[in-house]
Amino acid sequence: MLLCGDLGAGKTALTKGVAQGLGISGPITSPTFNILLVHEGRLPLYHMDLYRLESGSQLEDIDYYGTLEADGLSVVEWGDRFAEADPENRVLVTITTTGDFSRSILLESRGKRGEALAESWVAEYQAIGAGEEDAQ
């Protein structure tokens, strides 16, 4: 799951929700400084942040590709920062600030697995009663 959006858009806040869904109890702090924070839940959550990286070549240094292939969910803040960070299968989540308390969220999938994931999220979003037009 690649997250993009300006500072303060709510990338870490969204990740807190994901962590809650995975049954993770500890605080989900910003991974900016540590680059990678690992949380144990129903699935391990690999919470990454590419904000401080200077080039795509550093992805290998932080074991980015190894982490994506590990046994858990990878959530990558500033995931659109380097073309090399875009995996075969993913959902790109773009958060746009539309007001102090409102955001628009755009899902873009890549690969079969990415597509299936994005579709299931949209289906769940509709199932909890959100309007059809919100879930394009």
Binding site: L7, G8, T12, P27, I28, T29, S30, T32, F33
Partner: peptide, 12 residues
Amino acid sequence: TLDDATGEAFDK
């Protein structure tokens, strides 16, 4: 901190 570190907030 429950989210951002102090230095990080200054930097951002």
